[in-house]
Design a protein around this nucleic acid. Structure first.
Lengths: 196, 196, 196, 196
DNA sequence: GATGAATGAGCTTTCATTCAT
DNA sequence: AATGAATGAAAGCTCATTCAT
């Protein structure tokens, strides 16, 4: 029995790719990623057949991680407003805590190497978030548009806010509250603050 | 800034770069851009010293064009709501009419080759839009955050909506209205429709 | 020569190599050969230290098989002409029946990896054929040249004819007779047909 | 006007390829060929799009050169026998004088990279030789087989003899006469010596 | 001995940039 | 200034061989 293909090694490559892509962009050499993962350049290709495959898997993995981080646990008794608030908080906390992942994602998102399948898989990971948004927009001004549009919109607002938070980390908490209110206004149309 | 002879040629290169980058991404070869511009590969470098310089100039030019398209003419008598509405309409009309420019911008926005200076220059071009947003948010819920944040946020919402419009062009007008209302809610906090 | 366990496996590798080289050329990866032989890539190297060694052994084995196929059984009473005729028939029958082996041989013959020793060993295998040729040329026009030259020449004629037979398999029998006569003319100088 | 693409350089690459392939086989690196031709590795690809294209052009060029060398000038008054004799002499003289070209050809001949088109082009170059053979076999034992077969056969005999000449250069002239007679016997069936 | 992952040198090809014309 | 050939440093990927299991 040979040395088994190791899940650890595979993850090490994905982590290394995240770091290298965050700092050098998608043009980063596979050899650089391998070096960062402490493996030989040839070894990378036993885990990912091509660079494009590595990028696709990384994209889906990062999106899924982000989605998981954002998806709020179901706590009985919480109102929708609270749930949205918690989701949003979890989302930006993850983003602020993982700047490399966010930067890598920004590059991957617009890459031609990312297939339609990967984009689909990434969307699927957001179903928990989508469920919450579906309930939140139910009787509001967004009730008649496709849920996908709502998701896109919320994502746009979230990312824009996180960009600002990164520019001014000291004000992150303050911005968070402003953004949370804005989000709710977009979804539900009223500015009622969450019951504290 | 010593400018070489033909401004026409320079612009031809920028237009060619837009098309080529839209279809092939930032990895596009300078030779491909030169061919698309109907000049020799060497000639490109008499107009732009490096590929990075070309990308930066293209980025700023496209952002500026987008900003110009979005900036509403000052018409006496128009209310803020109407002006925001007009801005937004002009914005997405430009985006829908110029898919290549939008796609190229999406790539450029996240490129490591784009300098902080270029990002600053791009923001400056949005001063007309910024002015309008400044007035629009004056007494609303966003009155105490930096104007840059408001711009970022509005930009995020706009881009998300345009993405959706591209997915479903038939519904563009309908989405436009929904988005316009959402935008106003974010800025001003109330959903009052524009006085027609 | 310490031989590892299974002679079967060794032969399986040689057979697999024949097929793979016939279809992909000498550039074929050792891993491809191993896969075709249904063993692991590493295992191949317990049977052959290097790829070059495998190629050399394959070359000698194929040449020897060809020689064995061509060598006519000694049948008392047969005239030389009949024996040459039988040899030639056996030769091309083997070639037509084993296209992969022939193609692999064609590649191996010109490879830099094949050592002088292997070429010598291959010649040795043709001693039966050489004996017959020695007797056949005894009083003819080739009586004063080295036997090796006669062998080379006969080989050249045989291979050229087989190439033609492969191009037009339907005419193989007809070509066989023409070539047999030509062979005899080269060796013995007269065109007397075999006494049937 | 830029430096024009130079036919000299192109030929230098072909010559370099001949030498390098003769000594290292078809596995020779394009970089090695470029170095031997005293150009940069990238430059090679402005003259030949791919390595396979280079190999194909080299193959056709070498075959054509060999054919030209072998094709006898038409001299009024020469009998067929003399013409065949002259062709054969010119052929082997060229081969002995150009060992690298012969070795490179041997490799190229069996390469999978050589297309059917190239093989066709190579055959065409031998039309002068083919004409002579057509006339020579006219009333002899080979009159009823395809001319292509005759060519293949003559080629096989020629190459086999040249191989022997290379093994024993001192005997080249002697072998030449023996081979010439054998050739004539194959074609015309009689051993009549050339009228001196 | 058998397995297949690990290794790293080496390959062809691309491409931003330079430079002879 | 314009041209496009020349340059050479990468890049992604392959593969003979080694080695941990």
């Amino acid at each position: 029995m040979p040395r088994p293909r190791s899940e650890d090694r595979r993850n090490a490559i994905l982590r290394a790719a995240t770091r290298v892509i965050a700092s050098q962009g998608l043009g980063a050499a596979t050899a650089a990623i391998a070096r960062e993962a402490d493996i030989s350049n040839g070894s990378l290709f036993t885990y990912f057949d091509t660079k494009a495959e590595l990028l696709n898997e990384l994209y889906v993995a990062l999106k899924a991680e982000m989605a998981t981080a954002a998806t709020p646990d179901l706590r009985a008794g919480d109102g929708l407003r609270e749930q949205v608030c918690r989701m949003w908080t979890q989302w930006w906390r993850w983003a602020m805590a993982n700047p490399d992942k966010r930067r890598a994602l920004a590059q991957l998102q617009v890459s031609d190497d990312i297939t339609a399948d990967s984009h689909r898989a990434a969307s699927l990971a957001f179903s928990g978030v989508a469920d919450l948004l579906e309930r939140s927009r139910a009787n509001g001004p967004m009730q008649n548009v496709p849920l996908g549009f709502v998701l896109t919109l919320v994502n746009g607002i979230a990312e824009a806010t996180i960009d600002e938070m990164i520019r001014e980390p000291a004000e992150a908490e303050a911005r968070s509250r402003v953004a949370s209110d804005a989000l709710w206004r977009v979804l539900a149309g009223s500015a009622a603050p969450p019951t504290a």
